[in-house]
Design a protein around this nucleic acid. Structure first.
Length: 212
DNA sequence: TGCCAGGCCGGGT
DNA sequence: ACCCGGCATGGC
């Protein structure tokens, strides 16, 4: 399995090259994006983030003080905007209550306990938390998303109904714990899945193309 | 025009 | 422990 997963990575890397994820300027922006992109196309998230940037709301202090209704209006293009405004506020509250608003303090916490803490924040599930740990905190945690599950199950690496933990363990028990590797790997899986399914039809026979 | 996107929560079996 | 409806905009 180790060889298989490394071979897949090398094939993807050879085909697409480095992806340099996450597409964001700051750690805080990564976190905002991770929440806004829940079940949402990134093209929509970009508009929402642009609005937040224009209003200079991409800092912990600004997010903490902004009115929730105004926030909801600004992130409208990303969909589920009331829900997501609440989730952004939940995270902000957590960051201030627990770490005085300091991402530096937050990320200096032990990874395992930080992951558990973040999962208690309403609106942050496993994928969102792991994206935050990996892409904002540079922690060696593998992110599992719909694309990862789809590609692996279609290539018969895992059963279709595998749970999040099982898939994450598959990668983390068989690859070196390197945040750069994990980050590129996940980004390449997303890239490959999108590339293979230009029609965006989950059931289309060539989606994704055979890559193993 | 309708279906889908880098989920997650809460209530019902 | 699963299963399902709800949440919502923009792109193809």
């Amino acid at each position: 399995m180790k060889r298989k997963l490394l071979k897949l990575y090398n094939l993807l890397y050879a085909a697409y090259g480095p992806q340099y994820w996450w597409p964001a300027k700051t750690r805080f922006e990564v976190i905002i994006g991770a929440i806004l992109t829940q079940n949402t196309a990134w093209s929509n998230v970009k508009k929402a983030i642009r609005n937040l940037r224009n209003e200079k709301l991409l800092t912990p202090a600004a997010l903490e003080s902004v009115n929730k209704r105004r926030l909801a209006g600004l992130i409208r293009p990303s969909g589920y905007y009331n829900l997501k405004a609440e989730r952004l506020k939940s995270f902000s509250r957590f960051l201030y209550n627990r770490y005085g608003g300091s991402l530096k303090k937050m990320f200096s916490q032990d990874v395992r306990s930080l992951r558990a803490e973040l999962l208690t924040v309403k609106g942050l599930g496993e994928e969102t938390v792991d994206s935050i740990l990996l892409y904002a905190g540079s922690k060696p945690v593998f992110v599992v998303d719909a694309y990862t599950r789809r590609i692996l199950s279609r290539h018969n690496v895992i059963p279709e109904d595998s749970g999040y933990d099982a898939i994450q363990s598959l990668f983390m028990e068989n690859l070196p714990h390197d945040s750069m590797l994990f980050g590129e790997y996940h980004a390449l899986l997303v890239k490959a899945a999108k590339d293979a399914c230009s029609k965006r039809e989950p059931k289309c026979g060539r989606c994704p193309a055979r890559i193993l």
